[in-house]
Computed example of a mutant assay.
Amino acid sequence: MVPKRLRSINDVDAASWDALLAADYPFLCHGFLRALEESGAVCAASGWEPAHRVVEQDGELLALMPLYRKSHSWGEYVFDWQWAEAWERAGQRYYPKYLSAAPFSPVQGPRLIARDPAAAGALLGGLDAELQAGEVSSLHLLFNLGSENDLLQEHGWLQRLGCQFHWYNRGYQCFDDFLAACNSRKRKNFRKERQAIRDQGIEFRWLTGEQSDEAVWRQFYPFYAATYYKRGQEPYLPPEFFILLNRYCQASVRLLFAMQGERPVAGALFLAGGDTLYGRYWGCLEEFDRLHFETCFYQGMERCIAEGLKRFDAGAQGEHKLVRGFEPVLTQSWHKLQPGLHGAVADFLLRERAGVKAYRQEAISYLPFRQATE
């Protein structure tokens, strides 16, 4: 079995790709990747050249891996800038590299999917050959759930740990049920933050994908873009991406506007898949007290409760999530690099993993939940 490189996600049948994926996970479905490519968000010019791999036999898709040939490390959320600098100081080229990930989306999910171990091994073996030939400096697979771990270890990949903060719906029937699980001081703080929003005359309007037309996405885009402009960056995603996303992944879309009267003052995009709500992009053109916490956290919690979803992944960053009931969760990525660099990275990751585990353990003590004695 010889892996096949795709120049575009459209080079593989959408139904076959999604059937093998076999998961209600929006970030690797054919439509999501198609929206990224057709909008121009991922392409050679943006430094995200599609290089997806599949293994086929007798017209049947046996294995797949979303893959990009990267000319930089932006938009990944697992930082390897120091590795790149060290390799280039040694007189070597770090870019291009191969990256398996959901672009611009630090969300856990499947990465290498195969019908049998032989097909998965063939796919990884093909990447090993390209690495050994010097076509790329390194191989990276980000935010996987773990089903690939044993095979990656067998092929000499290195595990890296990270920490995110996720909220879990413990069978709550309403937001007050969540508050009842928290200590009295935190309950008071949560209510104060939410009251500040009401005092500013702000209410919220949720829209599903079916309720969102092109005009709605044009209205949302300035909020998304503002978050990047405030940091002096260009937005990763063009307006067309969101229109295509809604076209191809309509059932997953949850769009939220914060309204002051009939005027939208902030917007946030969420995607739903399986038992999880994913908070993705938010922005506000003006400053409102506590609006970020309400829009990005509390509204998402309530949406999880309303839809019976078990988990809320609100994004990559933030200890500010911890004190609002988002629990520290270990994430993982996997890496294989050119000899010389590989050994140095292995030593670094050994120390880093211990530090990440200790950080997660300490973070647990800051959660707002009541102790058994309360």
Rank of each mutant, 00 (worst) to 15 (best):
F369L: 10
L161E: 08
A122L: 04
N183D: 15
G232N: 05
G340H: 07
A118G: 00
P110M: 13
N189P: 00
T331Q: 10
F241D: 01
A268C: 15
R247C: 03
Q233P: 00
Y248Q: 04
G261S: 06
A225I: 11
G274Q: 15
Q200Y: 11
L291F: 01
L123R: 09
E327M: 03
P238Y: 13
F204I: 13
V107L: 11
L62T: 02
K336P: 02
A225V: 08
V55C: 00
K192R: 15
P238N: 11
L330P: 00
S365D: 15
R351C: 07
L28R: 11
W81D: 13
R290P: 00
L322F: 04
F32H: 01
E135C: 08
Y172M: 01
P50A: 01
Y25D: 03
T227F: 04
R185I: 10
L291E: 02
Y25H: 06
Q361L: 15
A226S: 12
P103H: 05
G156F: 12
G273H: 09
Y228D: 05
S46Y: 10
A314L: 06
D150W: 09
F27H: 07
A51C: 11
L139D: 03
D18W: 14
Q299S: 06
Q317E: 13
E214G: 00
N183H: 06
D313H: 11
P50V: 06
L141K: 05
K186W: 12
W167Q: 11
R205C: 15
S100Y: 07
L141F: 08
G209F: 10
C284Q: 04
A272H: 06
W217D: 05
V345W: 07
A266I: 14
M259V: 12
Y236G: 02
A314D: 07
Q82L: 08
E286C: 03
L141C: 11
